[in-house]
């Protein structure tokens, strides 16, 4: 986490995700990445700013960005 405070949680519902990759393309901070099977995974949550671009562009309702508790 490089000393940064984790402010956001990004949850991906793999049952609804159809692997279009838009979330990864829209993330401006490299928080998400596609794995070998084309599924989005969270790789750098410390850099998430909670901008919601991934959530709002997910056609499958499969991403939830929430403030970390």
């Amino acid at each position: 986490m490089e000393g940064k405070t984790r402010l956001w949680d990004v949850k991906i519902n793999s049952k609804w995700c159809k692997r279009c990759g838009l979330c990864v393309a829209f993330c401006p901070r490299g928080v998400l990445k596609l794995d070998d099977e084309g599924r989005p995974v969270v790789v750098d949550i410390a850099h998430c700013t909670g901008c919601l671009l991934c959530e709002m562009h997910c056609p499958d309702f499969a991403i939830a960005v929430k403030r970390s508790e």
Binding site: K15, W16, K18, R19, C20, G21, H57, P59, D60, F61
Partner: peptide, 14 residues
């Protein structure tokens, strides 16, 4: 009812 029937990448979910 989810996942929906729309294709991967379809804009309708957005």
């Amino acid at each position: 009812k989810l996942p929906h029937i729309w294709c991967a990448g379809c804009g309708h979910g957005i």
